[in-house]
Design a protein around this nucleic acid. Structure first.
Lengths: 144, 144
DNA sequence: CCTATGTCAGCACGACTGATATTC
DNA sequence: CGAATATCAGTCGTGCTGACATAG
């Protein structure tokens, strides 16, 4: 693939991605949780995580992660606990209410996306399925 | 494709998309123009467009598009002109400075994305190319 | 002493809704 | 008249930097 074709593909994919950003946010419109909140909750859903780890995984700065955590705590969806081995560290843990909320939100979002996918024909869905591994690898290449 | 497979595809694609959203934020920091501004400029780069058309293409509300246009006009990158056939309409047109700025920003961002695409092999890039039309249609299906 | 971790304060950007003109 | 188009005003969510307290 020559340079011109690479640049064209880069441009086209960027455009698709830009639209998706807006649509993903709208996907959450009638829900109780924002996309950022669901992401944060998903990160602590298997085990408690440090604020700094949440920030790194989300690609945001630590103060921004702190803010998210504080809001989620106020909503009763997570709690902040101490780390016995390091008193500077704050671990963020999902509450029962948080687990219920994140499960519910994930289900709603998946269903809406599935509904949109259903409007495509089989061949179109196949191209998306085939591209997912490459897109995942591309994301890896974009990571800092 | 049965329901379970649809939900799985929905989940997998959502996960890819979530990562991409955060990664492209870093990609799109070139210091001069924001992502939203580049998007707006791109929309008027071939011919003048109505504010309402810009809003629809961007997936945002008309007042939000107006706000973007006003900021771009203040920066000297676009100008607002009247539509002879309908006095309610405002057409947004790129200035020479706007064209230079958007060309520069697109080049920087496309080059970064192209660099990432270059780490994929030819077959992987082909799957992405093949999926773009379906992804665009999917975005259309997700639009409200 | 220097670094790591988290929080607070203040700010910027970009979206939204609701309320107007103005024109068709 | 009602509908369409754009703008204005005010608000909210979510990111940022810089300053700070505390712990290692």
């Amino acid at each position: 693939m020559n340079v011109d074709m690479l640049m064209e593909l880069a441009h086209d994919y960027r455009e698709i991605l830009r639209q998706s950003v807006y649509l993903t946010r709208a996907l959450d419109s009638d829900g109780e949780l924002s996309t950022a909140q669901v992401s944060t909750l998903n990160m602590v859903s298997t085990e408690p995580q440090r604020v700094s780890v949440i920030a790194r995984n989300a690609g945001i700065r630590v103060p921004s992660a702190t803010e998210q955590v504080i809001k989620l705590e106020a909503a009763g969806l997570v709690r902040r606990i101490a780390d016995d081995s390091d008193a500077r560290v704050v671990l963020v843990e999902l509450t029962d209410a948080g687990r219920a909320a994140v499960d519910r939100s994930n289900a709603v979002r998946n269903r809406r996306m599935a509904d949109a996918l259903r409007t495509l024909d089989e061949a179109e869905r196949a191209t998306i399925t085939a591209a997912l591994p490459a897109l995942a690898k591309l994301n890896g290449a974009l990571s800092p």
